[in-house]
Amino acid sequence: MAKYLLAESGINWLAIMALLTFFIIFSIVIIMVFWRGRGSYADVEQQPLIDSYPTEEKDELV
């Protein structure tokens, strides 16, 4: 019976599934971003202010 009700309701299930998938993935990403501590972003927040990073010189074979 539910099959017939869903078939004739005219609801676009594909669009609803796409919206739910986006909402779930977006929520997971937001939770992951806020779950990390502020210390994990310390290097990233200094990037625009640093002109160059020290590079390690490697022995190159000539």
Rank of each mutant, 00 (worst) to 15 (best):
residue 37 G to P: 00
residue 15 A to M: 11
residue 57 E to Q: 05
residue 11 I to T: 10
residue 56 E to K: 12
residue 17 M to N: 08
residue 3 K to T: 14
residue 15 A to L: 12
residue 43 D to Y: 04
residue 9 S to V: 08
residue 9 S to W: 09
residue 16 I to S: 05
residue 40 S to Y: 11
residue 25 I to G: 07
residue 49 L to F: 13
residue 33 V to K: 04
residue 16 I to A: 14
residue 19 L to P: 00
residue 27 S to K: 12
residue 24 I to G: 03
residue 24 I to V: 15
residue 46 Q to S: 13
residue 37 G to A: 02
residue 32 M to A: 15
residue 35 W to C: 05
residue 31 I to R: 00
residue 1 M to A: 15
residue 13 W to V: 07
residue 6 L to G: 14
residue 60 E to M: 06
residue 2 A to T: 01
residue 2 A to K: 05
residue 13 W to F: 12
residue 31 I to K: 07
residue 56 E to T: 07
residue 47 Q to F: 09
residue 54 P to K: 04
residue 12 N to D: 15
residue 11 I to Y: 02
residue 40 S to H: 03
residue 37 G to T: 02
residue 57 E to W: 04
residue 3 K to A: 13
residue 16 I to W: 03
residue 56 E to M: 10
residue 29 V to W: 00
residue 33 V to R: 04
residue 38 R to P: 00
residue 6 L to Y: 14
residue 37 G to D: 01
residue 59 D to Q: 10
residue 32 M to R: 02
residue 54 P to S: 13
residue 44 V to Q: 13
residue 8 E to S: 14
residue 27 S to V: 03
residue 15 A to S: 11
residue 52 S to Q: 14
residue 40 S to D: 15
residue 26 F to Q: 13
residue 31 I to N: 03
residue 8 E to G: 13
residue 11 I to K: 07
residue 31 I to L: 10
residue 3 K to Q: 13
residue 12 N to S: 01
residue 51 D to W: 12
residue 7 A to N: 09
residue 52 S to A: 15
residue 15 A to E: 13
residue 39 G to Y: 03
residue 35 W to M: 08
residue 19 L to C: 15
residue 26 F to C: 08
residue 21 T to S: 12
residue 21 T to H: 03
residue 7 A to V: 06
residue 23 F to E: 08
residue 18 A to G: 02
residue 50 I to K: 01
residue 35 W to F: 12
residue 40 S to P: 00
